[in-house]
Simulated assay, not measured.
Amino acid sequence: MSLNTLHDVYHHQLQDLYSACKQSMKITTELGRVASDKDLSEALIAGTTGIINGMDHIASLCAKHDLDPEGHHCKGMEGLAKEARIHAIEESFGNAATQDAAIISQYQRLVHYALAGYGTLNAFANRLGLDDDGAVLNQMLDDTYDGDRRMTDLATNHGINAAAA
């Protein structure tokens, strides 16, 4: 694919974000299985629901633009997923709370990648006059921010970081 216009970049980034979400879904499921804190595990399960929702919306946007959502593999998320697996699942931990803190850290890295993707796509859609796309992407951005804030709350107010310290 040649990226000659902002439309081209927009289309490429839609496919990239779909791939990122697909990869994030798999590792988020794994993180949810190993989390020992019940609220954290539930939040990660809710995160997978949000990821599925995002993938559905991105797939719909791709269809609207005659794109195959599977048309690109996101190397950035591939690296983040690999790092999450290494640093939150395969690592040796002194206690469960420390692993839960690592899980939150790694999950938030995944989420921040998605935030950058949704935010950029939203800006592109708005610049291109794709108001309906922009509205969908803005909602996904808001939903993703909510998930990120939930993880921060679990880490700081729920006591996971304190227990890990």
Results as ranks from 00 to 15, higher is better:
G54M: 14
L61T: 03
L40Q: 05
L67F: 09
D68C: 03
A97L: 03
H11T: 03
Y10E: 00
A35F: 01
F93H: 08
H7A: 11
G117M: 13
F124A: 02
T5M: 04
H11P: 02
A165F: 12
L31N: 05
N126P: 00
S105Y: 04
D143E: 10
T98D: 00
A63F: 12
Q13G: 01
Y113K: 02
A164P: 02
G117Y: 11
G147W: 07
L17K: 07
I103K: 06
L44Q: 01
F124K: 03
S24Q: 09
A63N: 12
A162W: 01
C21G: 11
M1W: 05
R85M: 11
I58E: 04
E42R: 08
P69D: 00
A155T: 08
H12F: 13
L61G: 01
V111N: 04
Q139P: 04
E91P: 01
H87N: 14
Y145P: 03
T144R: 05
N95K: 13
E91G: 07
L121R: 07
A135K: 12
D133V: 15
Q13K: 09
N122I: 11
G134V: 15
D132I: 15
A123M: 14
T152H: 00
Q139H: 14
L110C: 13
I86D: 15
L115H: 01
N95Q: 12
M25F: 15
D146R: 06
K38S: 14
Q106H: 06
V111F: 08
L110G: 15
A46M: 08
N157C: 02
G129E: 09
A84W: 02
